[in-house]
Design a binder for these strands. Structure first.
Length: 669
RNA sequence: GCGAGAGUGGCGGAAUUGGUAGACGCGCUAGAUUUAGGAUCUAGUGUCCGUAAGGACGUGGGGGUUCGAGUCCCCCCUUUCGCACCA
């Protein structure tokens, strides 16, 4: 068990330190589930026992008309009266058979049983009945609640079913027609709190409770401690030894790491006794691995193993220094690579939002507290890429079938016609229904990257994935569209080598000076691609390169001053082709060591610029004006345009708007 | 139910963040080249009216703000994801 709950507070607070998408931060906050409130103690009537509850609304204590314990609560037996014992026992048994999950599923109707016992509401001395019900969870708070039906929807529903008293302690607005009222308002029916608003009433009540010894403010988390142990073979063994007397000791450092023993049989073994716990797979490990003698004592190794998380929680640290045999990471390297904010950019799917990313943060904080890492947070910036989605098909039984083998009514593969209208689909002659979802094993709609690589090469695969759309959006895969980027790659190849053949060794570049228009286009492309890569807009960066290459197509030879920067721009997107061309251009070293091209600002400014002209907000002309023209000159030229003149003729000019470098709008009527 | 996001051509998507909607790609149409297929090159391709010039309409639907709205505000619809009795 790992005490992640001890870090709940910091796991929540330190989200302020990182540059992460807000939805992910929100999910983590909800997962940690910090809530502030108070513990309140209720004495049990005719007993020494007390029931402790957690509440975020101590201000509503006067409205607590009954109490509910979770069925598993340890006081249930003590509180139940003989008359109710049987009903209580049967309810508990029923609840025990249901998993937490099942309980949540049929949470529509409230169920419960009266224990026969009573407790005293400490604030007004009233006797209130104690019930048990499965809507109260043993795992959260204290496993017991004070029920305030007036201000809590669940309590209201329960009170309605079992006809329990309801007292409002917050005045709802006059037009309020609902049941439980959870909004703001002044306290009523609440003795010394009457008239106070919620926040003041809470403070006042907590003060009162503390004064009278009924406990104090408290913070509770939804987050639960982490069972970090699995009965599986594949996982890191715990370096822990069990002595014959039940003592536990760690494996000495010089014997680390503990490696899994080679085994043929991985099955866990079950005993004949149905109540005995099963022995994990390592129970079948050879005796010389299982037992180890130290200081004259024979220890047995821990037989459970660690879950997958054991690796994913710290791999980013080990990657910094993965061959280090003495430390998990060299402190100087850790400092250098982790910098001030941790990993510079972590790209991953949202499916990791609350599990991997929360647990890894926890480990990192433990390492930080022990002085092994220098940043409080592991991942400074997080970026969620979208899912790749694809069409999927189910047969009559609702079972997913291999999308690859689905055809339409004309026998054509589904992949070619899936977005066309009036298609019906078949799998092995049986009709199937089409749906759409995340590409993966469960929908059997995955496309093997190996296959795409085989057919088009990995530069094309890489480009296609980037060209699909914005990195953060989920996008549909469409194998048919891959030819587009493949054509681009081949066109680049042909432009520089003059041939479609891979073996072509000719390189068509010249030392001639580049025409000005081409140079300008190059620098615009440099500026666009640089900016787009910086913002991770790979799709538009590729579009800019495609546009630029179309200018090179008619040339017999590409000027070296254009060819080289172009290949450098291409290199992060299609590294293999770029390296090959770079080498053929006569370079012995990889282009990885070249400086990134820089756009010459002076070449980005044109002599003339296009200006759109609107009349009353409707586009009527496009005019070309000198870039340094004055507003008046531009307005004159705009008015002179034939089509514009036609639309303003005979009207009174009300306004003339000019947005520099963009648009002219004449408002006339 | 609660929370977060997304709706733009036949399809994937662009749009310097309030300033020419549809860049780029797929698909489709026509032409050139080719023995043919394929590949390549050129031109076209939101809808409607028009021979054309040009015009009307157009970013899920309805209202609004503005000289100007895919972009801002209000209401609604559809859809994807996450959480789900958390006291």
């Amino acid at each position: 068990m790992l005490r992640i709950t001890a870090y709940g507070d910091r796991l929540e607070r330190d989200l302020d330190l990182v540059d992460w998408p807000e939805p992910v931060k929100l999910m983590q906050r909800n997962w940690v589930g910090r809530s502030e409130g108070a513990h309140v103690t209720f004495p049990v009537v005719d007993s020494e026992d007390t029931i402790e509850v957690f509440t975020t609304r101590p201000d509503t204590l006067f409205g607590a008309t009954y109490m509910v314990l979770a069925p598993e609560h340890p006081l249930v037996d003590a509180i139940s009266t003989p008359a109710q014992a049987e009903a209580v026992a049967s309810y508990r048994q029923k609840a025990a058979r249901q998993s937490d999950r099942d309980r949540m599923i049929d949470s529509k109707t409230k169920t419960g049983v009266f224990t026969g016992g009573f407790a005293i509401n400490p604030v007004n001395g009233e006797r209130i009945p104690v019930w048990i019900a499965d809507y109260v969870l043993m795992g959260y708070g204290t496993g017991a609640i004070m029920a305030v039906p007036g201000q809590d929807t669940r309590d209201w529903e329960f009170a309605e079913v079992f006809d329990l008293p309801i007292v409002r302690t917050v005045q709802p607005p006059a037009d309020f027609e609902g049941k439980a009222y959870t909004g703001q308002g002044p306290a009523i029916n609440s003795g010394f709190l009457d008239g106070l608003h919620i926040e003041d009433a809470k403070t006042r009540m907590i003060d009162w409770l503390e004064e009278h010894g009924h406990r104090r403010r408290a913070i509770t988390y939804k987050l639960r401690d982490w069972l970090f142990s699995r009965q599986r073979y594949w996982g890191e063994p715990f370096p822990i030894l069990h002595g014959p007397d039940g003592t536990i000791r760690a494996v000495p450092e010089d014997q680390l790491p503990v490696e899994l023993p080679p085994m043929d049989d991985f099955r866990p073994s079950a005993s004949d006794d149905p109540d005995a716990p099963p022995t994990p797979p390592l129970g079948r490990a050879p005796e010389d691995w299982r037992f180890i003698e130290m200081d004259g004592v024979r220890y047995e190794r821990e037989l459970n193993t660690m879950p997958q998380w054991a690796g994913s929680c710290w791999y980013y640290l080990r990657f910094i220094d993965n061959t280090n045999g003495s430390d998990f990471v060299d402190p100087a390297l850790e400092k250098y690579w982790m910098g001030d904010h941790g990993v510079d950019l972590y790209v991953g799917g949202v499916e990791h939002a609350v599990l991997h990313l929360l647990y890894a943060r926890f480990w990192h904080k433990v390492l930080y507290d022990l002085g092994h890492v220098s940043t409080p947070e592991p991942f400074g910036r997080l970026f969620n890429q979208g899912y790749i989605q694809a069409f999927a098909y189910r047969d009559a039984r609702g079972i997913a079938v291999a999308a690859d083998d689905v055809v339409d009514q004309d026998g054509r593969p589904a992949a070619e016609v899936q977005d066309k209208p009036d298609r019906s689909f078949f799998y092995q002659g049986e009709p199937v229904t089409q749906e759409y979802g995340k590409m993966g094993k469960s929908l059997k709609n995955a496309v093997s990257p190996d296959e795409i690589n085989e057919r088009f090469g990995c530069d094309t695969l890489r480009l296609y994935e980037m060209y699909l759309g914005p990195l953060d959006a989920s996008k549909p895969w469409n194998t048919r569209d891959i030819v587009g980027v493949n054509r681009f790659i081949r066109r680049v190849w042909r432009v520089f080598t003059g041939s479609d053949e891979e073996a072509a060794d000719r390189i068509r570049i010249s030392d001639a000076e580049s025409p000005e228009a081409l140079t300008r286009a190059l620098h615009k492309t440099i500026a666009k691609v640089t900016d787009d890569l910086e913002g991770m807009r790979f799709n538009t960066a590729i579009a800019a390169l495609i546009e630029f290459v179309s200018l090179l197509v008619p040339l017999d030879e590409v000027p070296r001053s254009v060819a080289e920067p172009f290949v450098l721009l291409l290199s992060p997107l299609a590294p293999h082709v770029a390296e090959e061309l770079w080498s053929r251009m006569g370079h012995a070293e990889s282009l990885a060591y070249e400086a990134w091209p820089e756009a010459d600002e002076s070449l980005l400014v044109e002599d003339t610029m296009p200006i759109a002209v609107q009349v009353n907000g409707k586009l009527r002309a496009n005019i070309q004006v000198p870039s340094d023209a004055s507003k008046d000159a531009i307005l004159d030229q705009a008015r002179a345009d034939e089509n514009v003149a036609r639309h303003i003729e005979g009207k009174t000019m009300r306004r003339e708007i000019y947005v520099p470098g963009r648009i002219v709008n004449f408002v006339a009527n």
